[in-house]
Write a protein that binds this DNA or RNA. Structure first.
Lengths: 208, 208
DNA sequence: TAGATTGTTAATCGATTAACAATC
DNA sequence: TAGATTGTTAATCGATTAACAATC
């Protein structure tokens, strides 16, 4: 369920504001969704609310966190240390959700041995061994489009079961492997699409 | 339509491979979707295919590109130049889609004046003026969660109508402003959710 | 003409949400 | 008891996709 992390974020915010109880209405507002949807989503986890009262924030944080596995340790390998890979390597937002960058891998010999944060970049030749040694569960692909599928294949055969892909290409992975894609250009393109529809061109023949 | 950029990416790939004609079946395969969906999406743009033959790749690139506004110039302002903001400022994938980083803005006086790529970071005090001067249409929010809403408000009142938000917070924007969110921790969390469901814990009481 | 493939209809599926009985 | 709010049903909505007539 893709909305659970959003609820967790809102709940953690409430908890840090010392709020002890929250209604589905309020949680929905904070999370930017419909209240009925919140209740339905939460009821899927179990019957954790109290009619007439609402949900206990602390208890719900525990339950949602447990469902999402945030208390687990998720070692992550980042493949490709261009600008984006570096930003991810230095990103401190992962820690609180159980993610830990365990290894940095790049194919460029010039980058191998370089320190980024507290880690040292290792060669792509060692991909399989760092995955095995670090019990890496998640791979982040921040390579060029050209090498992304090859990297994904190697991650999968090394045992990685979750891949977050930043390369602008459609990857194929076997059943049982989770894949998500973030394509920054595409996000911008979707965003401006609506704008362009409303106010096309600004060129040539005027339309208004 | 959020799939158009995916089709465009596949079509550009075909074009660079000198492929002149493509069927909905093949385009669907390359884009990772259903063929009927491709035909339906494309028919919304107009009747650009030929029955029994397929679609002309070059022509379709033009039509989809025009629909998406890729030939237009989209000046972008990046607010917040931490690791992520820097990576975005240096990212070269934007150019081919019509996006151009026109200004870099940060609230930290220590960063103002610094050169990143070909641009110089300016103070947040000048946000409104750089937006106006550069006719900036798109704002990228790469600040902390705490300042994101304030930045978004200022972008909107300065005239920005499309916002891409990387801060881990739900932003509210008025009608007519497009908003998309990319939360990296959340992507990872959604990703590992399915994995965690299949193989929970690895702690305490064994379940298998 | 026979084969291929589009464009579009209509059926299917799943997600969203209003509504309300249950109940604190 | 009266008010509030959950959990869940059932209706609604929109998106997906199979199927096929149109037609190159």
């Amino acid at each position: 369920m893709t909305r659970l992390p959003v609820y967790l974020r809102s709940l953690l915010e409430l908890a840090s504001d010392q709020v002890s109880t929250v209604s589905s209405e309020r949680l929905a507002e904070l999370s930017g969704v419909n209240a009925a949807k919140v209740r339905k989503d939460l009821s899927y986890l179990g019957s954790y609310g109290t009619r007439g009262v609402g949900y206990d924030v602390g208890f719900l944080v525990d339950q949602v966190g447990r469902e999402l596995g945030t208390t687990r340790d998720w070692p992550v390998v980042i493949v490709g240390l261009g600008n984006l890979g570096r930003a991810l390597a230095n990103y401190h937002g992962f820690g609180t959700r159980g993610f830990r960058v365990a290894a940095l891998v790049d194919a460029d010999p010039a980058l191998v041995g370089e320190s980024i944060g507290e880690l040292t970049v290792v060669s792509i030749d060692q991909l399989e061994s760092v995955v095995a040694r670090g019990q890496v569960a998640v791979g982040i692909v921040a390579t060029t489009a050209g090498s992304a599928q090859d990297v994904a294949d190697r991650l999968v055969s090394a045992g990685v079961r979750s891949i977050l892909n930043f390369a602008p290409v459609v990857l194929s992975v076997p059943d049982g492997v989770s894949l998500r894609n973030v394509d920054l250009s595409m996000e911008l393109q979707v965003l401006t699409f609506y704008q362009h529809q409303a106010h096309p061109q600004h060129l040539g023949t005027a339309s208004a």
